[in-house]
Design a protein around this nucleic acid. Structure first.
Length: 261
DNA sequence: ATGGCGGTGGAGCACCGA
C-alpha cells in the first residue's frame, strides 16, 4: 500500500482555497504540509477542509507566515515550537502521523526591508532560527523513529537550483552563512527525497509573481522533503508539479510530492 | 530583484515575499 505526501507553499490558504480544493480532490494526497498559510485559526478554512476529507493542525499568525498539516488519518502529538526556537513567528509544526514524526517548516527568508537594504536583522533571525532548528532536528533524529521533514527552506542549495546564480550570489538565499546551515541540516541522517529520483539540474519549485518569471522560466528550487535514513527504502517516487504554476490563481510555489510505501 | 505581482490589513497605501 502506497501513500502520497505533498509539501506546498500556498502563499495564503484563503486565496488558494479554490486551487487547493481542486488539488486535494483530484490527487487525494494522504498528508499535506502547507507553508505561508497567512492566517489565524479563526479565519482558517477548517470546515471546507473537513468536507474534503481532511483534518488539519495549524500554527498560524495574522497576515504572515503560518504552517499547517492536513491529513485524512489522525494527526496527534502536535508541537508548534521546539526548544530554543525564536518564538515570534509561526514557522514550525510537527505531528505524529501513523508511525512517522512529520515536521513542516517555513524557514525565514532573511531579506532586508526594501527601504532599508543595509538592515541585516532579518538575516540574523534566519541564521539564529536555522541554528536552533538544526539542533532540534539532530535530537529528534537521534530518537530513532521514522521522520519526514518538508517545507520551504529559503535556500538555493547549489548554483544549478536557480536560473541565474549571479543574480542571487551573496544574497540571503545563497550566502555562505545560510549555505553552511543548510549543509549541516543535509548532513544529518536524512535523504533528500526529490534528489533520490531526480539528479538533473534546473528543477524549480518557485517562480516569482513579478517580472514574467514564469514565462521566462526564471525559477528557483526552494522547497524540499527529507526522510530519515530508515524511511529511504520506502520511497517510491518524488516530483514537482510544475504544471500548477500555470493554473488559474496560482501560488508562486508548486507542490513537491513524495510517494511512500 | 523590483515600478512592473499578489497577498494582507483595513479602508490609503504600507509592508511582505524572494
Amino acid at each position: 500500500m502506497s501513500c502520497l505526501l505533498m509539501s506546498w507553499n500556498v502563499a495564503s490558504i484563503r486565496a488558494r482555497m479554490g486551487l487547493l480544493s481542486q488539488v486535494l480532490s483530484t490527487q487525494q494526497p494522504d498528508i499535506v504540509l502547507l507553508q505561508e498559510v497567512k492566517t489565524l485559526p479563526e479565519q482558517f478554512p477548517w470546515e471546507q477542509l473537513k468536507d474534503l476529507g481532511y483534518q488539519a493542525v495549524l500554527s498560524g499568525e495574522k497576515a504572515f507566515n503560518g504552517v499547517a498539516i492536513l491529513a485524512k488519518e489522525p494527526l496527534t502529538e502536535v508541537k508548534t515550537a521546539f526548544d530554543d526556537m525564536p518564538q515570534t513567528q509561526a514557522r514550525f509544526i510537527q505531528a505524529r502521523w501513523h508511525d512517522y514524526t512529520v515536521v513542516c517548516v517555513y524557514v525565514p527568508n532573511g531579506a532586508p526591508p526594501m527601504n532599508q537594504p543595509e538592515d541585516t536583522s532579518r538575516l540574523a533571525y534566519k541564521l539564529a532560527w536555522f541554528d536552533a532548528f538544526n539542533a532540534y532536528m539532530k535530537t529528534l533524529l537521534a530518537e530513532g523513529r521514522p521522520v519526514i521533514l518538508g517545507g520551504d527552506f529559503n535556500v538555493i542549495a547549489q548554483p544549478t537550483d536557480v536560473y541565474n546564480p549571479d543574480v542571487f550570489a551573496g544574497g540571503v538565499l545563497m550566502c555562505d552563512e545560510v549555505l553552511e546551515r543548510f549543509d549541516r541540516l543535509q548532513k544529518l541522517p536524512m535523504v533528500n527525497a526529490l534528489r533520490c529520483f531526480h539528479k538533473e539540474p534546473h528543477l524549480y519549485s518557485f517562480w516569482d509573481f513579478q517580472g514574467g518569471a514564469w514565462q521566462r522560466n526564471n525559477g528557483i528550487l526552494l522547497d524540499a522533503v527529507f526522510v530519515s535514513a530508515d524511511v529511504k527504502d520506502r520511497l517510491q517516487d518524488a516530483y514537482l508539479q510544475k504544471e500548477l504554476r500555470a493554473a488559474e490563481k496560482p501560488s508562486d510555489h508548486v507542490p513537491l510530492c513524495v510517494k511512500l510505501n
